[in-house]
């Protein structure tokens, strides 16, 4: 069974097409970098995968569960870090993680705080946090219960270098344990540093789907620019 299957997904808003016939199958234990220019459709595709947006056509299965018809079961199988995480400002990170752990029916709060480096600040209210610390809180919440699929939308932006390295390490560790990570970003270097596979979106279409190892050196950036130029 695939960790994620996106079958013939198309999304239109009136006359505007945001995502055009995307097919994607991702095995367990893969780190996929989803890259594309601003407005390429990355966030729309991620919102469809998380069930927050319904596709005009097509289906999404997470661990074999249809996101549209079984939203709760699908969410149990995934952890999501949105580009701008919505958190309760009047909870501390530890209290927020306790809440998410209760909702998921799992433990592991201390481990998640440790993995993301939030430990020393875990008892401060989220309203006092920087954007980077909010992202780390959302990431720690997504890691709770070790879901099979982690979806991260531009989630490494705004992290200081040590935090970014720590988070990349934590994600890599989860992938080695069999989880699947999909990291959406427009920063080519980030994908090159962590991903096993690169899926490139331009104007709502998948224009490249390659193993990262086949794109050594500046290959990814070159491919990105070439494919983008072809779609213009």
């Amino acid at each position: 069974m695939k960790a994620l299957e996106v079958r013939g997904v198309r999304k239109r808003f009136g006359r505007v097409t945001a995502v055009e016939r995307v097919d994607l199958a991702v095995d367990a234990g893969q780190f996929v970098g989803l890259i594309g220019h601003n407005g390429a459709g990355k966030s729309t595709l991620l919102r469809i995968i998380t069930g927050l947006l319904r596709p005009t056509e097509g289906t999404v299965l997470v661990g074999g569960v249809d996101v549209a018809t079984s939203p709760r079961e699908a969410r149990l199988r995934m952890g999501v870090v949105p580009e701008e995480p919505a958190l309760y400002p009047y909870l501390s990170a530890r209290e927020y993680l306790d809440f998410v752990a209760e909702v998921r029916g799992v433990g592991g709060v201390e481990e998640a705080l440790e993995l993301t480096g939030l430990g020393p600040d875990a008892d401060r209210l989220v309203r006092e946090y920087s954007q980077g610390m909010r992202r780390k809180t959302a990431l720690a919440a997504a890691l709770l219960g070790a879901p099979g699929l982690l979806l991260l939308d531009e989630s490494l932006n705004g992290l200081d270098p040590p935090s970014a390295a720590r988070v990349k390490g934590a994600l890599r560790q989860r992938v080695d344990q069999g989880a699947t990570v999909i990291l959406s970003t427009h920063v080519v270097e980030t994908v090159q540093a962590v991903a096993d596979r690169v899926v490139m979106l331009a104007h709502g279409r998948v224009v490249a789907d390659e193993a990262a190892s086949a794109l050594g050196g500046g290959g990814l950036e070159r491919l990105f620019l070439e494919r983008l130029a072809e779609t213009m």
Binding site: L52, E73, P82, V103
Partner: peptide, 14 residues
């Protein structure tokens, strides 16, 4: 509401 933005990603009991 603001609660939905926080809860919609989680496997909550509706």
């Amino acid at each position: 509401g603001g609660d939905r933005a926080v809860l919609e990603h989680l496997p909550v009991d509706p």
